[in-house]
């Protein structure tokens, strides 16, 4: 049995565990990453600097905000659309496809596209507003109070289709008989939704929340190509700060400390979420080495 997982295990060790351990090691050094191995041991200095770093604290706040918005706005919207698209009506397949299309674009292409739409002088968005009779420009990406919400809008446009497809699949797995039986008992459509649809889609909802949060913590490509995290850190994410410190400023030690912080945030969230939220869904679905005899 062990031999069958060996190849995967070796790859996992080499490309996941070893780099993580190496990053943990370098996070205790002041190291520019160039040539040789780190030698200037500084203990926890990088981590001390990190928790005093306004950019890092700002990143946490921004990531938190986008996560909350995603869970409160993006996922319910995807859920609602999935319910609508579950109904029978002409053109249903076309709509499903249409809503899913943005997800197929790579993040970089999406960023370039929206960079043109929200371009400061001749952007398409401003032109549309002007055509509707609104005066003046909106500083879509230049207004430091607005830029993060614009990015959230783009993220929603790009990812709601993905969540919608998951919800749609979850909804289709609910046997129609349950609804028929409930209707015979005189249940209203509100009751059907509250007592059948919602509880039976619980596993799907919980997993989309999980994917959404982890995706947000790692947010990089789209924002980097669109704004590089600017103006002045207003749209910066953890991954952008890490990249900037490591690859632009050659502060690999500090960037490693940041990456370890990111790793711990993701890990802690994943563990807590699995333990307390996903535990019911995972029960019985995990295979054990004794073939499930115990």
């Amino acid at each position: 049995m062990a031999a069958f997982i060996a190849p995967a295990l070796i790859l996992f060790l080499l490309f996941v565990i070893v780099p993580v351990l190496f990053a943990a090691y370098t996070s205790f050094f002041d190291w520019n990453g160039l040539g040789g191995i780190p030698t200037d041991f500084v203990g926890l200095e990088n981590f001390q600097a990190l928790i005093a770093d306004e950019v890092f604290l700002g990143d946490l706040w921004r990531i938190g905000l986008i996560t909350m918005l995603s869970v409160a706005v993006q996922l319910p919207m995807a859920f609602g659309l999935a319910m609508l698209l579950h109904q029978r009506f002409p053109g249903r397949t076309a709509f499903r496809l249409l809503f899913f299309v943005p997800y197929i674009l790579t993040e970089a292409v999406t960023a370039v596209l929206f960079g043109l739409i929200f371009s400061p002088r001749r952007g398409f968005a401003d032109a549309v507003l002007a055509g509707l009779g609104f005066d003046g420009r909106v500083g879509w990406l230049s207004d430091r109070g607005l830029v993060l919400f614009v990015i959230f809008g783009i993220l929603t446009w790009k990812f709601f289709g993905f969540h919608m497809i998951l919800y749609l699949a979850g909804r289709q797995n609910i046997p129609e008989e349950l609804y028929e039986a409930a209707r015979v008992d005189g249940a209203t459509s509100k009751q059907l939704f509250r007592h059948i649809t919602l509880p039976l889609m619980g596993p799907t909802i919980r997993i989309t929340v999980f994917l959404s949060v982890i995706g947000t913590v790692q947010l990089f490509d789209l924002v980097y190509v669109l704004t590089k995290g600017g103006p002045y850190h207003a749209s910066e994410t953890l991954a952008i700060t890490m990249y900037d410190q490591g690859f632009v400023r050659n502060q690999i030690g500090y960037a490693s400390a940041l990456s370890i912080a990111m790793f711990l945030i993701s890990l802690l969230f994943a563990l807590i979420y699995q333990r307390y939220v996903l535990s019911r869904d995972l029960q019985g679905s995990l295979t054990s080495t004794d073939g499930g005899r115990s």
Binding site: F118, S119, R121, G123, R137, G139, S142, T227, P231
Partner: peptide, 11 residues
């Protein structure tokens, strides 16, 4: 909009 303008792009 200079805050989000780059040096060499269209705008």
């Amino acid at each position: 909009g200079f805050e989000s303008a780059t040096y060499g792009d269209v705008d």
